[in-house]
Design a protein around this nucleic acid. Structure first.
Length: 420
RNA sequence: GUAGGUAUAGCUCAGUUGGUUAGAGCAUCAGAUUGUGAUUCUGAGGGUCGUGGGUUCGAGCCCCAUUACUUACCCCA
């Protein structure tokens, strides 16, 4: 839970609408002049701060910035932290999109070094490599986008421009141009921007490319700085290559969150057998997020994993193991009161040896007990009945191979211990 | 915020132009020499067809409302 006014304005116009506002406690209409109320959007906007002071957290980055400011005297900078918690969006739920979901954030605050960006890229690569997911890490830089807007004389329209360009794949060149015109872009600006629309994502940044990009951004200082930063990250990625992730610069990558000022990241799934389109992870650099809480000049960079989306994708691609190897190792069949004591002794002896075992609690048919063991993927079923007691042995059935044999308890123990 | 779609057994779904006791697969349960699963065969139970109205001789099917779920756009994890 956060104060509403610490969240508003940080996530863009769209973001503000998606914040879950919490109604004030008690008589929440106390401060409202009900005679002035109208059912218009504008009236609603005016009344909102009067009836709601709290909101559910929209992401983990803004609350993190608040935390850093609150604890500035106890923190050594550069400060790194990770955090896994639910966040909320007042959105219409749909595939891969939830009202409540878990984000896993990793941030480094209090350092301008681009090495931090590189470290985060390494984390992204390592995580998705370990999860066995092929992904594309898309990267861009807000300064490049600002440079472009500056160059074409439409600094106030950065968001409109990037949002439109972002749709290139989906709606095509003509529609994008149409949308830009509709947003009020001059024909002169449009001419300048057109080469950008033909710029495809690239996976390497040589000097020539940089030079070309400088041209595209009209050699503005901001644009140049962004290109320089981008190249610096690329250089590091070239030097220490990633394990499995594809790393590419995509000039159409925009990101709606207002607070980003430098590098921006987004991770897309790159598996032919899945058509999941949402981003699995995102992030970027924010230069002055702590400023609004009273600690200016602190730059940070962070990424966020969408745990639920990653889970969905792993499920869809069947990458979860069918059962966990460290689950129950053996089930002792229940043969009734006569053999209960033998079973209990064995059960606790096995557990003392660190073997996870259970005793079927009811005296029911063997068929049912075996079905139970099978449904739980328990690899061994141990039987102690008349035969076994007479021979001072136990029967053990390997549920995978179907073979069964009679062995001593010490043989059983070492067998269950050895192949784990 | 905008625009669609769906709602029938525990689950996944059939159900013809409205017409008699609403079906299947899977799951569950019970049996096939009462010490054996994944892989056999036989049988059984289980549904006020989301809810409330309406049209009709008659509604799972048509119309209206309502609720829940879901998909796309917008945007994002």
């Amino acid at each position: 839970m956060e104060n509403l006014n610490t969240l508003t304005g940080k996530y863009g116009e769209e973001g503000d609408r998606l914040i879950f506002k919490v109604l004030n406690s008690g008589n929440y209409l106390e401060k409202v002049d009900t005679t002035q109320m109208e059912s218009t959007a504008e009236s609603a906007r005016k009344i909102l701060p009067l009836i709601s002071e709290k909101a559910l957290r929209y992401d983990l980055t803004v609350p993190f910035a608040r935390y850093v400011v609150m604890h500035k005297h106890e923190i050594s900078f550069p400060f790194k932290r990770y955090q896994i918690q639910p966040v909320w969006r007042a959105d219409r739920p749909q595939k891969g999109r939830y009202r409540e979901f878990y984000q896993c954030d990793a941030d480094i605050i209090g350092s301008n070094s681009l090495f931090n960006e590189f470290e985060l890229v390494q984390i992204l690569d390592e995580v998705f490599t370990k999860l066995n997911l092929r992904v594309t890490i898309k990267v861009n830089n807000r300064k490049i986008l600002s440079g472009i807007a500056e160059y074409i004389g439409a600094s106030d329209k950065i968001t409109d421009i990037t949002v439109a360009i972002d749709k290139l794949d989906k709606i095509g060149l003509d529609k994008v141009v149409e949308e830009l015109v509709q947003k009020g872009l001059s024909s002169d600006a449009l001419e300048k921007i057109k080469p950008l629309l033909h710029f495809k994502p690239i996976t390497a940044m040589g000097d020539e490319t940089c030079e070309y990009l400088n041209q595209l951004t009209g050699n503005t200082a901001t644009g140049k700085k962004g290109i320089e930063e981008l190249k610096s990250i690329f250089d590091m990625v070239m030097e220490i290559p990633l394990h499995s992730a594809r790393f590419e610069f995509d000039i159409t990558l925009a990101r709606g969150l207002n607070y980003y000022t430098g590098a921006i990241f987004e991770v897309k799934l790159n598996e032919p057998s899945s058509n999941f389109t949402g981003s699995l992870s995102g992030g970027g650099r924010y230069d002055d997020l702590t400023g609004i809480f009273g600690l200016p000049g602190l730059s940070g960079v962070g990424i966020s994993f969408g745990a639920d989306r990653i889970y969905d994708v792993l499920e869809e691609l069947k990458l979860f193991p069918e059962s966990y190897s460290h689950g129950t190792k053996a089930m002792l069949a229940n043969f009734g009161e006569t053999y209960k004591s033998n079973n209990l002794k064995l059960l606790f002896s096995l557990r003392q040896h660190g073997i996870s075992a259970i005793y079927y609690p009811e005296e029911v048919k063997m068929k049912k007990q075996f079905e139970y063991a099978d449904s739980l993927h328990i690899p061994y079923v141990v039987i102690i009945g008349e035969e076994e007691v007479n021979q001072e042995k136990v029967s053990v059935k390997n549920m995978k191979t179907g073979t069964q044999e009679m062995i001593t308890i010490s043989q059983l123990t070492s067998r269950l211990k050895s192949n784990s």
